[in-house]
């Protein structure tokens, strides 16, 4: 009896001589996944790399600038040092200013401090 392709359509469509068993299919998928992901990592858009490069380059340039200023300062001293008198620290300037005050001025500064500090530190209980 001749084979009727139209009558056997379901069988012909649902069976294949090319089927792999589950183990073969899983193993092939793993091989493919490894290769596809490796290729994808190689060909990933370079956006992320660019983003990392910019701050890294800025940081490197900043460090180079600071180092070059440090080297120049060590070799030549700070700019304008030779022409001017040695500069005073803030503490030394404060001492100098206080020592120049009269007794009346000093008393007024103490009085001012005592009135101002409680207000700044904690609320007035009498309010």
């Amino acid at each position: 009896m001749p084979y009727d392709m139209e009558e056997q359509e379901d069988y012909l469509k649902q069976h294949s001589p090319y089927d792999l068993d589950k183990g073969q299919w899983e193993a092939m998928q793993q091989r493919l996944k490894a290769k596809v992901l490796a290729d994808r990592a190689q060909h990933a858009p370079p956006r992320r790399r660019k983003r990392l490069w910019r701050p890294a380059a800025s940081l490197a340039a900043g460090i180079a600038l600071i180092l070059s200023l440090y080297v120049v300062q060590r070799e030549n001293g700070p700019a304008g040092k030779v022409a001017t008198a040695p500069s005073l620290t803030a503490e030394q300037r404060l001492d100098k200013a206080i020592s120049g005050l009269s007794d009346a001025d000093l008393s007024w500064v103490h009085q001012l401090n005592e009135e101002e500090l409680p207000e700044a530190g904690e609320p007035d209980e009498n309010e």
Partner: peptide, 18 residues
């Protein structure tokens, strides 16, 4: 061929993922 099909599928997927 099974190996040929795997190679072609691999190229297909690589191109698709790119």
């Amino acid at each position: 061929g099974a190996q040929d099909a795997e190679d072609v599928l691999q190229e297909t997927l690589i191109n698709a993922f790119r």
